[in-house]
């Protein structure tokens, strides 16, 4: 652990300021998630040189570029595949994947379940804003029922994924969820996830104010974020009838944790036992 952990967290120490102003829309929850991540890294004493951020495509994928570390912006849905190669080749690096609900659960769903199953020591941060923001607001696997998107003009009729249940079912050694509203809790969860020796899946409840929020009349960013706390979407806005939105009963915090053998360790043990024969 570096001495940095003893000093107060200063976000400017961890970001590439030369890229500012950043691309995120006003009110986007991803910036809060980014801050929480960097804060966790600071407190864990991880050196920036030893940090590898692997991201996919979409709004979530773009935030990796702002981190002053070894950053890899890969292809849509594939960051876990790239990260698997990187971590296996370089066990000395802390590999953190930043992905979104579309990137991780739709186009990258197969990679997610197998990354969970393998239980390689990677931290996967899935920023869930319930929408494909970068492409203009199409329905995603986590878009809530009856929400309007550019591809569900009559409201969403598809069931949603519970990403955390999926990750746990697929074998992730550490599963947690937190809201951007509670940055210190989010930071703590990320810290625990990174420290866990195995695959950790962390769902971050983010918000897309500009596209999703406006399309569904969910209010300004503060209102959207506060609605996370209420554990259900406020019913007081606009055209959608109150009864449509049920309380989501979203559980937060550490949802699952076990000490299943980590993949690279299991691999090396197997090879060592073969060499002895």
């Amino acid at each position: 652990m570096l001495d940095q952990a003893k000093t107060p967290f200063e976000i400017r120490d961890y970001i590439r300021q030369q890229l500012f102003p950043h691309f995120m829309c006003p009110g986007c929850g991803h910036g809060i998630a980014l801050r929480a991540l960097l804060w966790a890294i600071h407190d864990l004493g991880i050196a920036k040189d030893d940090l590898a951020i692997v991201s996919g495509i979409g709004c979530s994928g773009r935030i990796g570029a702002y981190i002053d570390a070894n950053t890899f912006h890969t292809t849509h849905g594939r960051p876990l595949a790239f990260a698997t190669g990187l971590k296996l080749a370089r066990p000395d690096l802390h590999v953190i994947v930043i992905t979104g609900d579309g990137d991780c659960l739709a186009i990258g769903g197969n990679h997610l379940i197998h990354a969970c199953r393998r239980n390689l020591d990677i931290t996967c941060l899935m920023l869930n804003n319930e929408i494909y923001g970068m492409t203009g607001g199409q329905v995603s696997p986590t878009t809530s029922s009856d929400r309007y998107t550019t591809t569900t003009p009559e409201g969403n009729y598809e069931p949603v994924f519970d990403a955390c249940k999926l990750a746990q079912g697929a074998g992730a050694g550490f599963v947690g969820r937190e809201m951007t509203l509670q940055t210190p809790s989010l930071k703590k969860l990320i810290q625990q996830g990174i420290a866990h020796p195995g695959f950790s899946f962390l769902e971050v409840i983010s918000d897309c104010t500009e596209i999703y929020g406006r399309k569904n009349d969910l209010g300004e960013s503060a209102e959207m974020v506060l609605s996370q706390k209420a554990d259900f979407r406020s019913a007081s806005y606009g055209m959608i009838a109150d009864e449509v939105f049920q309380p989501r009963n979203v559980k937060t915090g550490v949802l699952y944790k076990d000490d299943r053998p980590e993949y690279a360790q299991a691999y090396r043990q197997k090879i060592a036992s073969r060499a002895k024969k």
Binding site: K87, A89, R90, H114
Partner: peptide, 30 residues
């Protein structure tokens, strides 16, 4: 494994390609 290398059978062809690029970005010949 005999030369301290890594073999991994991935979940699909896409992942295999991604994994070798990831490992190469880390410095391995893949």
């Amino acid at each position: 494994p005999a030369v301290n290398g890594i073999f991994v059978q991935m979940e699909d062809e896409i992942a295999s390609m991604g994994a070798i690029i990831g490992a190469s970005m880390g410095g391995a010949k893949t």
